[in-house]
Amino acid sequence: MSEQNRTESEPGTAGPIIAIENLGKKFVVGKTEVYALRNISLTIEKGEIFGIIGRSGAGKSTLVRCINMLEPPTEGRVLFEGRDMGALSKAELNIVRRSMGMIFQQFNLLMQRTALDNVCFPLELSGMSRETARKRAMEMLDLVGLSARAKAYPSQLSGGQKQRVAIARALAPSPKALLCDEATSALDPETTDSILALIRQINREMGITAVVITHEMDVIEKICHKVAIISKGVIAETGRVNQVFFHPKSDIARRLVVPEALHPDKMVVDHLYRLIFDGQSSYEPVLANLILACGQPVNVMYASTRDIGGTAFGQMVLQFPDDPAARQKILDYAAENLIYIEEFSRV
């Protein structure tokens, strides 16, 4: 089966907006040096949603904070629209930061300001007049669907609403990029989906480039065009999301595309294979036809439907028979019928 093309127009054809070159970050804690990031090089194209995924402590937050110099890198550099962020003066940096909005897991709203005044905040910083700022802030609240709660304080809002206010605040100064550090990790699944949909809408309608940090493959699959997998401070793999999903090259990527319970340290079963097929066709015919055609029993270990960039895919993990000839028969059948299949037990 070939890689699915995206239905929307291809973003990222306008050239890079963020270029990370051989970036490293060393923390000195007492007398010991900790490398949080090593030799990171990434290019983020204008208009794309770029996901960065990794486990806790992998260095995701450090990386995103290096992009806007909240954390100055100790090696390498970050170019934003071709300008070296590390070479800017404090005042210049503050101006460039206005073109990169940032949202956080904990929302980080000003607790003593109303929703509206929170959105006004970045506009006040740049010296916009009070009336103009309020007007712009109202538009932004409208965009995120919260104009009715303009006068509410953050303590009176739900988590999802707080994140919407934070997004409105990040968008108010008309940024070119939006940096999202685990923006949905504090939210329930439904709210997560609505926030992700909002980020995608902003990306499509306003052409804002988004860098999305997460530890959940779901988030990457739902909205990202490209993904970088980061592990222990280095990039393990990077590419288009469907490419990484179909042909994960690194161990860590292979682990990310299936649930934890199937990881080899949790499961001691031989001859596991991963099957991917068009999610529009239901599971039964695919599996039933395979079994009927090959006359071989298979054991279903896992089956799910994945939503990758808005297209549904079926994914199954199957245990094949011990007999090599029998296995080959199944593989041949899959190849004939354009079912994408790969051995999985070696993860």
């Binding site: 909240l70 005042a91 930061r97 904990q106 980080n108 905040f121 100064p173």
Partner: peptide, 21 residues
């Protein structure tokens, strides 16, 4: 909250602005 300070820095607030605002 340090997060709020960080958010202000990410928006390009100067030291004075962070103190006063």
């Amino acid at each position: 909250d340090k997060g709020v300070i960080e958010a202000a820095q990410s928006m390009g607030a100067s030291t004075w602005q962070i103190l006063w605002k």
